[in-house]
Design a protein around this nucleic acid. Structure first.
Lengths: 332, 332
DNA sequence: TTGTACGCGTTATCAG
DNA sequence: CTGATAACGCGTACAA
């Protein structure tokens, strides 16, 4: 196999046609006589010719590649979304360049630069906190961008999310109905639009349930399991008997710490996790969870992106997918 | 921001030099007078010029992109490895095109074709079963390939793994020493070289521990949680009191089913998981696990790949990383 | 130290 | 239906 880059010219020569015709055949252009098409196809098979996508990209200004930027692929939350993105992407013949940002503004900036220099046709962005700087950069690009699980406060950038406000309201109400008087909430930074929505939903639910809002019961938990274990101490100190945890990994940490302390779940303490990523089913007791349709979020986002890339009409930029609360063993 | 693709020529014009000089500056070529370099830099800043990586790739025949092919990114096992790959990749200025194969031969073939047509500089392959067809294709490519967590029976393709034989031996021995008389093993398909190694280690440990090998106690478990739950019935039926489970997700399924049945872990049943992916710490009781250094496996593989891509000398192609058994709560 | 000119492998336009 | 030929944006010998 001496494979020294056989080009479209080689194929043309062997098939006895011009390279233009070969190009037509390769690209499925209809204007080719069946007989010549067959000659070309034979030559392609004979030479084991494979089109060079880079050259193609240069000439056509399309790379059939989209950039995906996310905090870290090791999170089952982002992994599930990403799987949805990839499935739809490959369905539309796109590939995915993936980059982990650790939600670091500087890294995000660099990744964005790289993606643009690589001429990606579109970008899928995930990141709990959408920094102002990054947001501006995203808006100033000609390249289509879709946010997933991330809210742009101004609702300018296309995005796919669930109704965080409603989900927080429902989860809190559920805990209230189960008789909990002190209900905690662990979410990400309150500077994120997404969490502001959650906060409002939480407060509304408390009020409607005749409970008092106490900011001491709201905690900022990042993505870590350890964080969850640490927060349990404070939850218990403050008399909390039920908690809604936005990030699943943190929820698992909370559960583990409670179990280790001998606190009975759900008898003495109830937990509702926030995104129904796979791990919520793996724990024992399994975690009641807000079911964010993660795979679908990714799939829908990618579908939206294809429309944007192909300049199709898009009636609505801000997509909201349905969620539900899946009852498992961590609530009564 | 009228951004109509400013090229190297525009920069040259503004800076009053030739495009060759601009190219030199952009590529950090030393042979440029400091003064002109500065002029060029200014022009670049003024025009907000960004090199076109596609054109660059065509001219230089290097894309600074590697292709990563894996069964599914939703597995914490592969996700952890992938994170290691990406960190080292970006350290060396490479990007990662990611594709999920579901371990399907046909998909793998297509992905490989796509990667090659996109002119990736190298390929990282993960997949429990390395199909003969795929293996051949991988070997016939000029593009460097590194396998991770995957064994090439012939040891021809460069790879990074742990010693599966030894790990199986140790885990089995541990359960034997703890007094278990019937020890089960759940692994993937026995057609995979990796699992054959496990099988041998398992058998050796049994013999040395004076226990009998019974093929009825070896199960083929794929990656699913559900599978683990199903297998528990059979394990119990056959009097097994301790099991080694190669795939963590399956191990979690086993644990959950046992807990649900009221079987005490580790008192009445012991479990050792196979790869120490994050979920093994998240369960309660947490899972004793063979600690495969997943992140490192990915990092080392990518490092090896950079050497291959840069045609550096590589003394050893078959890398084996150390593992250990991390004691948690699922063993006595 | 800097500039010229060609090539990388395709796509796309325009004749014919 | 088919064939020249000019881009696409950049790297790089070869000259100067």
């Amino acid at each position: 196999m001496v494979e020294s880059t056989t080009t479209i010219y080689d194929v043309a020569r062997v098939a006895g046609v011009s390279m233009a015709t070969v190009s037509r055949v390769v690209n499925g252009n209809a204007n080719v006589k069946e007989k010549t098409r067959q000659k070309v196809l034979d030559a392609i098979a004979e030479l084991d010719y494979r089109p060079n996508a880079v050259a193609r990209g240069l000439a056509s200004k399309r790379t059939t590649t989209v950039g995906v930027i996310l905090p870290t692929i090791t999170s089952t939350y982002f992994a599930a979304i990403t799987r949805g993105v990839d499935d739809i992407a490959s369905m539309y013949k796109y590939n995915m360049i993936l980059a982990n940002s650790d939600n670091d503004v500087e890294k995000e900036g660099k990744i964005l630069e790289t993606f643009l220099s690589k001429q990606v046709d579109g970008i899928v962005y995930m990141g709990s906190s959408l920094d102002e700087e990054v947001r501006t950069a995203l808006k100033n690009t000609r390249t289509p961008v879709v946010l997933v699980g991330t809210i742009d406060g101004d609702k300018e950038l296309p995005s796919v999310n669930i109704d965080y406000h409603l989900s927080a309201y429902q989860a809190t109400t559920k805990l209230a109905k189960n008789g909990n008087k002190k209900i905690g909430y662990i979410m990400g930074s309150l500077t994120d639009a997404e969490n502001i929505e959650r906060m409002v939903g939480y407060q509304e639910a408390l009020i409607e349930s005749g409970l008092e809002f106490d900011e001491e019961l709201v905690f900022e938990g990042n993505y870590s399991y350890e964080q969850g274990k640490v927060l349990v101490e404070r939850l218990l100190d403050r008399g909390v008997t039920g908690v809604v945890v936005a990030h699943d990994t943190v929820a698992v940490g909370v559960l583990s710490a409670l179990m280790a302390k001998g606190v009975k779940v759900p008898e003495d303490f109830e937990i509702i996790a926030g995104s129904n990523s796979p791990i919520t089913q793996y724990t024992y007791p399994s975690l009641t969870s807000v079911n964010q349709p993660l795979y679908d979020l990714g799939a829908v986002a990618m579908r939206l992106l294809t429309k944007l890339m192909l300049k199709e009409e898009v009636e609505e930029n801000q997509l909201i997918l349905d969620h539900e609360i899946i009852e498992r063993q961590s609530t009564k």
